[in-house]
Design a protein around this nucleic acid. Structure first.
Length: 256
DNA sequence: GCGACAG
DNA sequence: ATCTTGTCGC
């Protein structure tokens, strides 16, 4: 009955394995623009957003119901042209630094399903809820998605993944100017990991943008900013709203 | 030494 | 990630 035990922890052998997977994957990440970005955002037509929502009692447990959502938006209007939601049951808990192993399977399912059933909606770039290179191993979930789909990806996180040796302080974040202003985030070796972006004038806190795969940081920044009507870029905001709505219905059904 | 820690 | 009320402003 191992499956019934509390699985809030993951054994160290698995963490070791995951660490190796991410170290290997990192060497395959392309941090420059691919042909899709030849002349700024002029050739950008479709932008995708991927997100997962969990019921309140799921916590970091595994094998509990959650909903993964995929939204395809037309660029630059951000009009939704396609959307999909799928029930999923992540088989491992959330472990900081290893989010990909929890969320990659359901998210990859959505993308592969899209490519198979609606190839006309194949996005030029995917915005992933989470980090890309702004990660302890420089290999966040956005890198995983890009590597496994060969589609350009950008990591967009709503909170800073606090790491040692990173030059991002509260002061830096709060001294930013108007919408569009940003500050680079570097490690102690002066290597640029990502950036904090003030994505909307009303937004008190920035969002954290980093390379996922097959795109440079400048193009990532411009793309994300162009997708922002509010703090969170539209494709991600829509995916979040849709998956959350399904969780709400799930709870209403289980209740009573 | 302990705690910190995307979602 | 998730829970929550009101409040301010276009």
């Amino acid at each position: 009955m191992a499956g019934n035990m509390s699985d809030a922890t993951v054994d160290s052998a698995l963490i070791e394995k995951w660490t190796k997977v991410q170290n290997d994957l990192r060497s395959n990440i392309i941090t420059s623009d691919s042909e899709e970005w030849q002349s700024d955002l002029n050739s950008l037509k479709l932008v995708a957003g991927l997100d997962i929502s969990y019921p309140k009692d799921a916590h970091d447990k595994s094998h509990s119901d959650a909903y993964a959502a995929l939204v395809i938006c037309k660029f630059p209007s951000m009009e939704i042209v396609h959307q999909d939601v799928e029930l999923c049951q992540p088989d491992v808990p959330y472990v900081p630094g290893f989010l990909a192993f929890r969320e990659l399977p359901p998210l990859l399912n959505l993308v592969n399903k899209l490519l198979k059933e609606h190839p006309e909606f194949k996005p030029d770039v995917i915005l992933v809820d989470g980090n890309g290179l702004l990660h302890p191993q420089k290999c966040g979930v956005a890198c995983h998605i890009g590597y496994h789909t060969s589609i350009c990806t950008i990591g967009v996180a709503k909170n800073l993944f606090v790491m040692e040796n990173v030059n991002c302080t509260k002061a830096m974040v709060q001294n930013m100017g108007g919408a569009g202003d940003f500050t680079l985030i570097k490690d102690n070796e002066n290597c640029i990991l990502g950036l904090a972006l003030k994505s909307a004038e009303e937004a008190k806190n920035p969002i954290y943008v980093s390379i996922g795969h097959k795109i440079c940081l400048e193009s990532s920044r411009k793309t994300v900013l162009a997708c922002c009507k509010y703090r969170v870029p539209e494709p991600l905001r829509f995916a979040d709203g849709i998956s959350r709505e399904f969780v709400r219905q799930l709870l209403a059904k289980t209740d009573t």
